[in-house]
């Protein structure tokens, strides 16, 4: 599945090698190539989609594609798919707070004019 290196000292606790399998998952280059290609395809897709007349769905599609791309980068390039629960939780906390900031601020802006016309 990956380079020959890391299977040599597997699970021998306290070895001083950096390649602990349980600790450090080495993602093979094949995955990176696939992911990179997907990202480029999605880039082309989002540019193409922006030329279509889709009304409100234009931004929805653009953001959806951006989210997919970001997720792929986070999961594979940034190794979150293979990381500890703590790392996953950290990413989740960041996204959650980010959305809180945006959603609760916009909640004010979208309801400001209610009942005033």
């Amino acid at each position: 599945m990956s380079a020959p290196h890391e299977h040599q000292h597997q699970h021998t606790k306290d070895n001083d090698d950096a390649t602990h399998d349980d600790h450090l998952h080495i993602v093979p280059p094949r995955t990176y190539i696939i992911v990179g290609t997907i990202l480029l395809i999605f880039t082309a897709l989002t540019v193409w989609a922006s030329y279509l007349e889709l009304g409100v769905f234009n931004p929805v599609i653009a953001l959806f594609i951006a989210c997919v791309k970001a997720t792929v980068v986070v999961l594979f390039f940034m190794h979150v798919k293979y990381s500890s629960k703590l790392t996953k939780l950290t990413v989740g906390a960041g996204v959650f707070t980010f959305l809180t900031l945006i959603a609760m601020t916009l909640a004010d802006y979208f309801t400001r004019a209610w009942g005033r016309w």
Binding site: T46, V47, S50, Y51, L52, E53, N58, P59, A62, L63, I65, A66
Partner: peptide, 9 residues
């Protein structure tokens, strides 16, 4: 997408 692709049609 936010800056470049708001509405290209």
């Amino acid at each position: 997408p936010l800056l470049y692709l708001i509405s290209r049609h």
